[in-house]
Amino acid sequence: MATSSNPLARLADAGVAVWLDDLSRERLRTGNLAELVEHGVVGVTTNPSIFAAAISKGDAYDEQLRQLAAQGATAEDAVFRITTDDVRDAADVLRPVYDRTDTQDGRVSIEVDPRMARDTAATIESAKKLWATVDRPNVFIKIPATVEGLPAITAVLAEGISVNVTLIFSIERYGAVLDAFQAGLEQARANGHDLAPIASVASFFVSRVDTAIDPKLDEIGSPEAAALRGTAAIANARLAYGLFQEVTADDRWKALAAAGAHPQRPLWASTGVKDKAYPDTLYVDELVVRGTVNTMPEATLDAVADHGGDASDTVTGTKDEAERVIERLRGLGIDIDDVTRKLEEEGVKKFTDSWEQLLKQVDEQLSGAADQVAASDAR
């Protein structure tokens, strides 16, 4: 088990839940996920890109693909079966954490079909189907924070389904997510649901903001622009946390908390460092504050475990400084609202493209498996 001298344990002591941003059947079969849980990982997030990478490597899915091919499954059916099976098994690995943390951690996320990101009704139906199929209380259904996704978030929470709101980039949209979350809990309470087991996190994407803004600063080329490199993403996230504090201090939230609700924790996503000029633990060390989640790709998790910081609070009291960073960027002609709007569009497209690639890949593998089955039957 982790000790207080371990950077991951220090993060836990500081109130930061450490999650892994990855899942594969190989991790499940080898016991790797269980081992990571023993060393401080208390949750798992997935997305279409992660599943596409998992299925493309090794032979862990070959037997199930052969079975599905023999059953005449379509690529969409196969992807649904494979991903829900993996998430269910991961949820079982993490169930002791879920029980130990009073339902707050030990969660595994699975995303609705990203092609539905602009379709409210389809997102709601997809979320319900995923929830019923995985059939584990410690699952999060991931719903993108698009304009069309907001009413879906409310409707799904109202059914008592726990939600991970994903692809949040802007402060304005985050405010709308917090409102959708509270509206969902209010409806759930009216529907007679116990609010205590209904959980939610708001996945605020971090590194992609710097990836989008740093080239603009490089193009400007002034000393002030150079000084702002690598500051936008952290400032944006710190402002999001400030908004979270404001919302959880108001009377509307207090009424929900009195009814047993847990807050929608901010989750720092996209925390892998893209620019090698920056410390590889940058988006972990600079976003330490109690009551948050940091989901990390394995390389970042390993870096933090090896040489992470002392886990001192690096967020509380930083609102004014963060606002100055954003204003200095605007002074240079960089509108962060415009940047985050484009990042949302790109994020939806990226996940949709990954999903389409996953379907194509599985379709090809099903065809190959069907040929093997036919050849075997002919012998």
Rank of each mutant, 00 (worst) to 15 (best):
L228D: 01
V288I: 13
I82D: 02
I171L: 14
F181H: 15
E286Y: 04
E298K: 11
D338W: 02
S367T: 00
I50W: 12
A226P: 04
D21H: 09
A145N: 11
K128S: 08
V42I: 12
R136S: 05
A249V: 02
T3L: 05
N6Q: 11
E111K: 14
V41Q: 02
P215I: 02
T84I: 04
G221V: 05
A299D: 12
L195W: 04
A240K: 02
L11D: 06
V16L: 01
L33I: 10
A232C: 03
A226K: 09
M296Y: 01
T211N: 08
P7G: 04
W131D: 14
S312C: 09
L33W: 13
T46V: 03
I234G: 09
M296T: 07
F351P: 14
F351E: 08
D302T: 10
Q71A: 12
F80V: 04
F80M: 06
D210L: 14
T83Q: 12
T314R: 08
D194Q: 05
L8G: 00
V293I: 12
W268T: 10
P223Q: 04
R115A: 07
A121G: 06
R107N: 03
V139S: 11
V156P: 13
R189P: 09
S354R: 13
L11M: 05
W355S: 12
G160D: 11
T300C: 01
P114D: 12
P96Q: 06
Y283C: 06
L11P: 12
R173E: 15
N294S: 14
A90C: 02
A14M: 02
G347A: 14
W355R: 13
L185M: 14
I220F: 13
K274P: 12
V16C: 03
R379I: 10
H262Q: 13
D62Q: 08
A237R: 00
D22H: 13
E35I: 08
V97F: 05
L239N: 01
A303F: 02
L329P: 08
Y98E: 08
D320V: 05
I143A: 15
E344V: 09
A255V: 14
G230L: 01
V273K: 10
A34S: 12
A375K: 05
R100M: 10
P137V: 00
D13G: 11
I198K: 04
I55V: 11
A91C: 03
D22M: 03
Q182I: 02
P96R: 00
L332K: 11
D250T: 02
A121M: 10
